[in-house]
Simulated assay, not measured.
Amino acid sequence: MRVVVVGAGAVGASIARELLSHGHEVVIFDEKPEVIGRSDLRGAQWIIGDACELSTLREGGLEDTDVVVAATGDDKANLVVSLLARSEFGVPRTVGRVNNPKNEWLFDDAWGVDVAVSTPRLMTALVEEAVEVGDVVRLLTLQTGGASLSAYTVPHEHPVIATMVSQVPWPPDVSLVAILRDGVPVTPSGDDVLEGADQLFFVSSAEGEAQLRAMFTTADRRPHEDPAPQG
């Protein structure tokens, strides 16, 4: 796979390093000539220049690129790069780094962004996912189609425990894609029985996520056992 990474800062360099280690062809754009030749990024092709300029992007061969990662520390630059990659070069997939959470609403299909990655939001989500048992937490937004990846940790004594996956009335536009149980990922089947402390991962639409949250909230409020008879 051919990947263009725009921005050779800490984030961009880390992404490029991982991609190189996985055997991908990596092209790195940056405006600073001194970044060339980093020992940890050997094997990458370097383009020095402003990636917001069409001439610079052409030099990097974006028309033959599979993925563009706009990873600079400037949200405006990341939006422009994503838009040019999609509209001018037809790049199939774009990933945009969101530096300021207030700008996250801009990173959508209108600006050519398929996946918006907000480090502050992701860190917050991971913290919440770790401590907020019993709440649906959004981990990642996929702008194409408005889908998102969410997680839910099943509380102990929750009514859904001991229920097979196929018997749970999941909302429309919600897909259970994985179960993390005792640190081991499980690909869910209809016969799998849910247990307390299971971490459930879903891909859903925005409406489906809201319905999923409502479903778990309603279920959690149901009495776990019949009240004792009064005499």
Rank of each mutant, 00 (worst) to 15 (best):
L200A: 13
V6Y: 10
S14R: 05
Q211T: 00
P171Y: 10
G49D: 03
V186I: 15
V27Q: 01
A151Q: 04
R38M: 14
V91Y: 10
P159W: 14
G37Q: 04
V184I: 15
A44P: 06
D192K: 05
V35F: 15
S204I: 11
S150A: 15
W105I: 07
A10P: 01
V168T: 04
E18C: 10
T153S: 15
Q143V: 05
E195M: 15
T187V: 15
V95L: 14
K102P: 00
A85D: 00
N99G: 15
S55W: 04
V115T: 07
I161Q: 03
G231A: 12
G145K: 00
E53R: 12
A44W: 12
D64F: 15
G9K: 06
V67T: 05
A16Y: 10
I48L: 08
D191H: 07
V95R: 03
Q199M: 14
A162R: 07
D114W: 08
R181H: 13
S87N: 07
V168M: 12
T65Q: 03
N100K: 05
A51K: 01
A8R: 01
A197M: 13
T163M: 14
D75C: 09
L62A: 03
E128K: 07
T72S: 12
V174M: 10
A178H: 07
S55P: 00
V4H: 03
V131I: 14
S82Y: 02
V113M: 09
D198S: 12
F107S: 00
P227F: 15
V11I: 15
V193M: 13
A110T: 02
R222M: 14
A178C: 15
A44F: 15
A10I: 11
V127M: 12
R86T: 11
A228D: 04
S166Q: 08
G190C: 09
R38S: 12
G9C: 14
L139S: 01
W46A: 09
A8N: 10
G12W: 11
R93C: 08
G96L: 05
L62V: 04
V35P: 04
M164G: 02
N78T: 08
